[in-house]
């Protein structure tokens, strides 16, 4: 990866990578740290992306960087493992009533509340399940690619996805959402 590659990666996928870091950490402060460390590490390693592949090199590079973020986040997670509780930013995990306006229909408000709650319970899932949820639904990666990235069999990816979806369904139903 050259400096130009890095610049292009940030321009095209920087926000996605940052949001991925945010999902992993749950707060801005940690996401800032993880995002920065991830990009530093990606640049330091300077992996040469195989340009002959079907996927665009930049997309492959993005996936590769997400893999670095996951590895580095594990360190962060361990470092903070003795926190009594993990604090989540209200910014993304609570519905912001002050953002609601007359233009928001009742239906839209309800939908936003449901999505904020869903985001919150996704974050409460075990890290192993969360990782596959983020990679599959947020990063749009295939089961096969997730398996390669996390170095686990495809079957394990699928079972974690199913377990996560079941857990989410139960929690949503408990809250009265269908």
């Amino acid at each position: 990866m050259t400096k130009n590659d890095l610049e292009q990666l940030i321009e095209t996928h920087g926000n996605e990578i940052y949001q991925f870091c945010y999902h992993l950490t749950g707060c801005r402060e940690d996401a800032d740290d993880l995002y920065q460390e991830t990009l530093f590490k990606a640049y330091e390693i300077r992996k040469k992306i195989d340009k002959s592949d079907v996927d665009s090199p930049l997309l492959k590079e993005r996936n590769y960087v997400l893999g670095i973020a996951i590895r580095l986040q594990k360190n962060l997670y361990r470092k903070k493992s003795r926190r009594k509780e993990e604090l989540l930013d209200n910014e993304q995990f609570e519905y912001q009533t002050e953002l609601a306006s007359d233009f928001n229909t009742e239906e839209k408000v309800e939908k936003d509340q449901i999505l904020a709650y869903l985001r919150k319970i996704i974050h409460s899932l075990p890290l192993k399940q969360r990782k596959v949820i983020y990679l599959f639904y947020f990063a749009d990666m295939s089961v096969k690619d997730i398996g390669k990235l996390l170095r686990i069999p495809e079957g394990t990816v699928k079972s974690r996805l199913n377990a996560a979806k079941n857990a989410l369904r139960i929690k949503m139903e408990e809250k009265g959402y269908e």
């Binding site: 940052y18 920065q36 999505l115």
Partner: peptide, 28 residues
Amino acid sequence: NEEMIREALKLNIDAPEEINEKVLRNAK
């Protein structure tokens, strides 16, 4: 359900510009 999860994971936040600049500056 699948669409709901995808929708819930969409965030309206961007990577801080100062961090991007710092990373590129250090890369230089």
